[in-house]
Amino acid sequence: MIEKDLNQIFQDRIDADDRIEARDWMPEKYRQTLIRQISQHAHSEVVGMLPEANWISRAPSLRRKVALLAKVQDEAGHGLYLYSAAETLGAKRSDLLQQLIDGTAKYSSIFNYPTLTWADIGAIGWLVDGAAIMNQVMLCRTSYGPYARAMVRICKEESFHQRQGYEIMIALSQGSEEQKAMAQDALNRWWWPSLMMFGPNDAESKHTAQSMAWRIKRKTNDELRQAFVDSSISQIEYLGLTAPDKDLKWNEERGHYDFGAIDWDEFWQVVKGHGPCNKERIAARRKAQEEGKWVQEAAMAYAAKRKQRAQDQQTRVA
């Protein structure tokens, strides 16, 4: 069968909302797009552990300490599911991790911002995980089966994280003046980067059109961003805080909130590796990987010895 027909059959399956599985034929570009997207997503989970882990040692109650530890651990688990999903497409985890520490793979830029106060842990859970959920709920119906199934599990945990984050924000906003100020400051710093998480405007996004056609994505960046803003405003009001956007107002005609212009210069600065913590995040991952090399080597050497001993044993018995 010529490739043109295969492409057509593939697209027909996509259009019929069929799930594509690992062994199915798929266009090479579809495979590469997915490997890129899933591995970026996996890297985001793993790098995303770092800014939050920064506060585990200082969590202000044992209950919060345990919850934060468990949350960061969940992110590691998400990383694992996603690397596994990428492996179903023929990628190797070790190669993907190498790309991360070489700086050739991307991950969500939000994790290049620093966590400066305890309230940041609340804001990340609430806003960053909230924005991620918008994206991920859509991905539960993405056309590639293993990715969609990983997302179903991840979404369940993420909504739990979001509630946890919001609960931290409630405690702070109902607390002392100092705590409220801390909550407002965290909202001020995380609001715009959270809106940037959805990526460039649709007109600027080079991957969106093809990804929509393949139903890898089912909503555009701008649609998701709007949904996030719409759902966040009442949550901000409930906390008695103010979104750091003077242009924010309800638009009766559109049935949506209008919001101010995003600072795309800042977005591209961080994407291109010049955000506040890009270097530190990659350095931390590189350190973990390099310091783990001898451990991996030892584990492999031990496994080989065991295998050899078992074989020797068998030979003796025989």
Binding site: M49, S57, L69, Q73, G292
Partner: peptide, 29 residues
Amino acid sequence: LAELCGHGPILEQDIALTNIALDLVGQAR
């Protein structure tokens, strides 16, 4: 142990060590 969360040599071991940290802090409570 919790200081190592996010910095473990292998993702699986990061998770395992964090499990132990979680158990211990839970017991401490």
